[in-house]
Nucleic acid binder design. Structure first.
Lengths: 261, 261
DNA sequence: ATCATCTGTACGCTATATTGGACATAGACG
DNA sequence: CGTCTATGTCCAATATAGCGTACAGATGAT
C-alpha cells in the first residue's frame, strides 16, 4: 500500500510501519473496524495487529468507537494534525480563497495536495448550481487521473516521476491505460504554462482547471482547481483561468511560514 | 511526559512510544527542531531518535522544514487529523456555535477537550472588545487550572480522578497548591449543576464559564466556555449561562455521528 | 448436538530493533 | 593551533518485538 514496506516479501514488518499502515487503512476506509478485520484486510498477522492496536489505543492515536470493539482514528491525531495546520497556516486563507473562487465562478473550487504518491482533495467549496459537482475530501486518487497531478510532480525529472508514481496508477477507472510518455509531455506543458486544463479523463462531463500554489522553493506545494461542466468550462476558460491565477498568487507565499512568537 | 512509558526506569523504550513522544514534543514546542535537540530535550538516546526520525520522515509523519535538518510534524498527520475531524464532525457546527456565542456575548468563546490527562483549547472565537482575551490553541494545560477541567473529569470516581491527574498539576502557576479535596468538591458540584463558573485561578482579571457538551454515553466529551472580564462576567452571569447552555444543547448529539455514504 | 466461523487472548521462538559508544566533521573560542 | 561543543553516521550486543500457533468463548448454521 504505502510502497515502502512490501519491497521484499516474507520479511518481518517494523512496528512503526505497520502502525501507520493501520492508520492509513482506517483513513481510507473512513469507518471504524475491528482489529480482526484490519488484520485480514491489510494482510498482517492478527497477533501483531492486536498488539499494535492496543498500543495505539493507549496513546490516544486510536479510539474505540462504533461499538463491538471497533476502533478508529483518535483524538491525538486530530491535535497533531491541528498543530501541523497551525504551523503551515494555509488553512484560514485557503478557505477564504475557495469561497471567493466559488462565489465568482459558481463552480466547485478545490485545494489539492499530494499525500505520498497519491493526489488528494484537502478542501473543497461546492459551486452554486442546481446540480453540484463534488468529490470526497481526503480520498487518495492516482496522480495521472487529475489535472493537478500534472503540476504537482512537475519539479521532478521524467525518470523520477515514473518511479514515483506506481505504474498501475496509469490505468484509468474505465480500464484503459494512459501512456506514460503522453503524461510526461503534459507535465512539461503544465510546467511551462503554469496551469493545466483538460476534459477530465475519469468522467465524461467535467472540465478541470488547475493552477499551482508555489512554496518558497518554487515547487508546486498544492493546487487550486475548478471543476466545471464541460461546456461552461470551455465557454469561460479565460475568465476562470484568470481568477484561479489571482487566487493562487494570493496564497503563494503563505505556506511554510511559521508564526512563532 | 506521556505518563505511559516512564513506569520503570532503565528499560528499553518501544519504538512506537518513542515516536509518539517525539511527535507530542514537537507539538508542544510548536517549532521545528533538529533530531539532536529532540534527543537531548526528551532524554532519549541520540541514535534511536535519528533512526525514528528518519522512519517518520519516510512516512510523511515528519517533514524537513526550517532548514539545517530541522524537522516538524508532517502532512500525513494533517490528513489523519482531518479524517478524525470528518468522522466525528463536530467542527463545522462548532465553529458556527462559537461564532454565535461570541456575537451574542461579545466575549471570547472556546471549545475545549481533554488531550490525554491535560486540558486543551480546540477552537476559539475572540470576543468583540477593545482589549480581547485570548489563549493559545492546542496548548496543554493542567486540568485543575480550568473551569472546564471540573466538568471534563466529572464522570470519574474521586479516586480515579486523583490518579488520572498528575499530582504536580495541582500546583498553580503562581506556585500555590490547590487542595485536591477542594478540587474534587468542585467537580461534584459542577456535575450536579451542569456547569461551572469561577474567577480564574490562573490570573486576576478573568471570570470563566464552562458547560459540558455530552456524548451519547452521558459523559462530558468537551466543553463550551466563555472567558470574560470579572465584572462583566458577574454582571451578565445569568444571560451568559443561558446562552452557553443553549449552545451546548445544540451540539450535544453531534459528536460521534459518522456521516458515511 | 455438531460443526464452522469470528473473535480475542496467551505464549515461546528468533529475527531484529534499540541502544551505547566509537568515529568523523565542522564551527567556536581562547 | 589545540580544545571544546554540536552535529550526524556507523556498528556490534542483546533485550525484545513481531510472528506463528494454540487455546477459548460466542455466535450461528445445519
Amino acid at each position: 500500500m504505502d510502497a515502502v514496506l512490501d519491497e521484499a516479501a516474507g520479511k518481518r514488518a517494523r512496528g512503526l510501519d505497520r502502525a501507520f499502515e493501520i492508520l492509513d487503512f482506517l483513513r481510507q476506509k473512513r469507518q471504524a473496524l475491528k482489529p480482526n478485520e484490519i488484520a485480514a484486510q491489510i494482510g498482517a498477522p492478527r497477533s501483531s495487529v492486536y498488539e499494535l492496536v492496543n498500543l495505539l489505543l493507549r496513546n490516544g492515536i486510536l479510539e474505540f468507537t462504533g461499538g463491538e470493539g471497533r476502533v478508529y482514528l483518535g483524538r491525538k491525531l486530530y491535535f497533531l494534525g491541528a498543530a501541523y495546520e497551525n504551523h503551515f497556516d494555509f488553512t484560514r486563507e485557503c478557505e477564504a480563497v475557495l469561497e471567493r473562487l466559488a462565489d465568482e465562478t459558481r463552480e466547485t473550487a478545490q485545494f489539492c495536495m499530494l499525500d505520498g504518491n497519491k493526489y488528494t482533495v484537502v478542501r473543497m467549496r461546492e459551486g452554486a448550481r442546481p446540480f453540484r459537482i463534488s468529490t470526497d475530501i481526503g480520498q487518495s486518487v492516482p496522480i495521472p487521473w487529475t489535472a493537478s497531478g500534472r503540476l504537482l510532480v512537475a519539479h521532478r525529472t521524467d525518470e523520477d516521476i515514473l518511479t514515483f508514481i506506481p505504474s498501475q496508477d496509469f490505468r484509468l477507472p474505465g480500464g484503459e491505460w494512459l501512456d506514460p510518455q503522453h503524461f510526461l509531455a503534459e507535465v512539461r506543458q503544465a510546467e511551462r504554462e503554469g496551469f493545466f486544463t483538460f476534459n477530465s479523463i475519469v468522467d465524461s462531463f467535467t472540465h478541470c482547471f488547475a493552477v499551482p500554489v508555489m512554496d518558497e522553493g518554487g515547487h508546486a506545494a498544492a493546487t487550486l482547481c475548478l471543476v466545471t461542466p464541460r461546456d461552461d468550462g470551455l465557454a469561460n476558460r479565460d475568465r476562470y483561468l484568470a481568477r484561479l491565477k489571482e487566487a493562487a498568487a494570493s496564497l503563494n507565499h503563505a505556506p511554510t511560514r511559521a508564526k512563532r512568537g
